[in-house]
Design a protein around this nucleic acid. Structure first.
Lengths: 150, 150
DNA sequence: TCTATTGCTTGAGATGCTCAAGCAACGCCG
DNA sequence: CGGCGTTGCTTGAGCATCTCAAGCAATAGA
């Protein structure tokens, strides 16, 4: 990989870049979701569940909205059999929302249809992709940096 | 900066990381917007306008939604004097939406209140921030890579 | 047990969103 | 010039999303 020369961005520039990036990603995402006949909120919810099942409460926290909101979204997803409510065995108040097989396929199909994002990622080489994956993990997922060979 | 060792993520892993990252960003963003008394859509619209004024049509394209949708959002933003409609001098059909000073301050205030994101960015050093800024630009803004010193 | 808390749902009211329809301004072409 | 298709925005209908307040069932703690 080449040594690169960059100017250091200010914090405000970086925030603006994040906002622009998010805007671009979200546009691509919601168009892909619409292709699958889903709203952005529904697709976002499916996406969260792709990693692991979650309770209604956990979904509300992750999506930063009121729990009553999740009730309606999950109602509609359940009606389409993309998702299933399962009463928690350890706490009968809790309902765990689980993706059905059709639900998993839908998430994958939506991600596959994000043509703009895919094309952009294709323009990166493996090393850049690795760096991006790592940096995003550290910023948004609280991951530690990779092993350092200093 | 240290030489680092990373494993190469698959495309699917990278897509999932992007989804998680934007989920995290969106949560932080919409909480900050709510602090300012704005919905996520309203705040997103203001954010787009922070870079430059745009016509209703351009906003609809950028936000990947119907133009009639923008009418309502801009109506409400205008009612709060965060935004102004200006008839284009070159095409009287077109209305350019421009941020007021209060609007600019609101965007900046929202970005400043994104504590989770700020804290995460603070954990990066300057070099990492530069790399992140560059990679996001190449993926989502169609920017070319930085000058290479290979 | 009694009580406070937690997880989910319901209903009301505002906003977001898409579609179809409509008006005004533009552009082109005869 | 005059006609005519196109474009930019708005309106209205209909449903989804979202917040808030209220309510019920199950849990946890005293």
């Amino acid at each position: 990989m080449a040594e690169t020369i960059r100017t250091i961005p200010t914090k405000a520039q970086l925030m603006e870049r994040l906002a622009d990036s998010f805007s671009g990603y979200y546009g691509d995402f919601s168009l892909a979701a619409a292709d699958a006949g889903l709203s952005a909120s529904q697709a976002k919810t499916l996406g969260v569940l792709r990693t692991a099942p979650a309770s209604m409460r956990a979904l509300a926290t992750t999506l930063a909205c009121d729990a009553s909101n999740i009730t309606g979204i999950v109602d509609r997803l359940e009606k389409r059999e993309l998702v299933r409510r399962e009463v928690s065995p350890t706490d009968r108040r809790v309902k765990n929302v689980v993706l059905t097989t059709a639900g998993e396929e839908t998430v994958d199909a939506i991600r596959a249809r994000m043509h703009t994002t895919h094309a952009a990622l294709d323009a990166l080489d493996d090393a850049d992709r690795a760096v991006l994956h790592d940096l995003l993990g550290r910023v948004f997922c609280g991951a530690r940096g990779p092993r350092s060979a200093t």
